[in-house]
Design a protein around this nucleic acid. Sequence first.
DNA 1: ATAATAATGAGAACCATAATCATTTAGGCA
DNA 2: TGCCTAAATGATTATGGTTCTCATTATTAT
Lengths: 146, 146
Amino acid sequence: MVKSTLDKQVSSRLGQDDVRYTAGRREVVFALSEADGPRSAAELSEDLGPSVPLSSLYRTLAVLEASDILTPHFSSPGVTRYELAEWLNGHHHHLVCVACGQVEDVETDDEVEQRLQAIVSDITGRSSFIESNHALEIEGKCQNCQ
Amino acid sequence: MVKSTLDKQVSSRLGQDDVRYTAGRREVVFALSEADGPRSAAELSEDLGPSVPLSSLYRTLAVLEASDILTPHFSSPGVTRYELAEWLNGHHHHLVCVACGQVEDVETDDEVEQRLQAIVSDITGRSSFIESNHALEIEGKCQNCQ
DNA sequence: ATAATAATGAGAACCATAATCATTTAGGCA
DNA sequence: TGCCTAAATGATTATGGTTCTCATTATTAT
């Protein structure tokens, strides 16, 4: 995604909530748009350096999540990773390395995604659970850890 | 699963690791075998009462995970839930309620599971990632929270 | 029985995250 | 342009889930 396009979408969405799109928040959104998977506060802090202090970073993540710019992701104990929400980043799934904990995005083409959605409907169809989303997490070993 | 069968399988598996299957550990395994989804330490502690103190409970969970009796599961911020490992509990997927955080198991029949495995293979086939397992997490609202 | 080893439990320590609060910054308006 | 008000920031402190420590207790092997 082009940076300026993303910035416009985020800015507009935040505007609806009367939330300002400040420099620090832009940095966080940009760093996440460059990442190839969800990032924790600690990982982002490393990427960003001292220009965004941890306390501000945590608050920024919470603010951006509340406005549906970011989605939290849980795959390792005790740490929350964030990624751009689906409407910004596209629907995708995750490869979770059981060795190093890194999470990588994978895209699926429409045909595969349709088959997956059919499976989800098959599963929830019989229950009283109302589906809003699904996530296919594939665990294994990434190239580095094999 | 019959209690005695489960106990035998767990006991035998722990024996291979020279780990004792003590009363407290039996209580935890039993509580998880009765649960209809992954349970956190806090939830288990509520189920078990004061007979298994928290510090012992956490250690028991770690020990049982190390011997592949339990599998950790991450779906809400900052809390790890455990369930019996797949070889004891069967392969299944999860319905995660976005409102209350509860996680419920769902079984899939073989035909559906085959279709899902085919999708996973389609996705990882093109990459250098080596799959060991997959998890389909369906988010939405449980009956209580609708 | 006894020695050796593992398990237990109470409490302290740890670490990721959230809350506090004084200060700074930014947008609305004269 | 310069105030005024509300929002954002950042250093610090608090919180809560989890792990560690260590003295005590229980279990296994000889």
